[in-house]
């Protein structure tokens, strides 16, 4: 039972504001190890800020965030992160394998190159791109580049995989291949997908959290959990915005709160 497994990520009364803008206010939610989670919200709702808090790139002004039971910055090595990388510079000279090897870069040390390369090739096999090892990264399609970034995240064998808008500008074939990779990882690796599509999520999703609710008297937004509905014959689930579940309630979908 997923809900009996240890907690992967827990937000407790977290608030965060930029100097002139309150973003999050009293956000509390958690999910468990092995779960496949979707975090949805329209553009500008605070998803990116929430992601930065999870990754330890910003610090909450109030409340606590724990990742795998520890402080976020200390636990960062267990995270595999797949950014959007929207500001990618196509003139940057780098090969596919070098991008993946970057996933094992240490903060200050130099690691053994051959060892890293072998692990990077294994990670490329996981995303079915092992034939493109020495290809310049700039020669790949957008979908292939995103899968290379998934391989870069997987190379460190993370306990939790975080993907920011993984299917944005991706062709159907790459999208299918990406989800088949994620399906193989599901259960062993906690997966968190952040997306602006608030209506549909992958059928692999166990639970969905929405960052868009502003409670009365609050300046910032908070996080709520919504119900999910299967769509017959589709590889997607519909987000039921009309059915709100307490954000810290984790027995869904096996048991609805009374």
């Amino acid at each position: 039972m997923i809900e009996k497994s240890p907690i992967a990520l827990q937000f407790t009364d977290v608030s965060f504001a930029y100097p002139t803008l309150q973003i999050l206010e009293n956000a509390s939610f958690h999910f468990h190890q092995g779960e496949f989670i979707a975090l949805v919200g329209p553009n500008g709702s605070g998803k990116t800020t929430l992601l930065k808090l999870i990754l330890g790139l910003e610090e909450a002004q109030k409340g606590t965030i724990t990742l795998m039971g520890g402080r976020v910055k200390a636990m960062r090595p267990v995270i595999g992160y797949v950014p959007q990388h929207a500001t990618y510079d196509p003139s940057f000279p780098i090969s596919v394998i070098e991008v993946v090897m970057m996933g094992l870069v240490d903060s200050t040390r130099r690691l053994k190159k051959q060892e890293i390369r072998n692990k990077a090739v294994e990670a490329l096999k996981q995303v079915e791109l092992e034939d493109l090892v020495d290809r310049p990264y700039s020669q790949l399609s957008g979908g292939q580049r995103r899968r290379v970034l998934v391989a870069r995240a997987l190379v460190s064998n993370p306990k939790m995989l975080i993907l920011d808008e993984p299917t944005a500008n991706m062709d159907k074939e790459s999208e299918a291949r990406l989800y088949s990779t994620l399906e193989r990882l599901k259960g062993n690796t906690t997966i968190l997908i952040v997306t602006h599509d608030t209506r549909f999520v992958s059928d692999l999703t166990d639970r969905v959290f929405c960052v868009d609710v502003q409670h009365e008297g609050s300046a910032g937004r908070t996080v709520v959990q919504h119900a999910l509905e299967n769509i017959e014959g589709e590889y997607q689930k519909r987000v039921r915005h009309d059915v709100e579940i307490p954000a810290d309630f984790c027995a869904y979908p096996r048991e609805m709160p009374s």
Binding site: L55, L57, P77, H85, M101, M102, V105, D106, S107, L111
Partner: peptide
């Protein structure tokens, strides 16, 4: 030579490099 991997990572994808703990 000594910090080539860190230089390459921060130049290619600064956000990812920060997540990997590179200052």
């Amino acid at each position: 030579w000594r910090f080539y991997p860190q230089l390459e990572a921060t130049s290619f994808d600064e956000e990812f490099a920060a997540v990997r703990g590179i200052p």
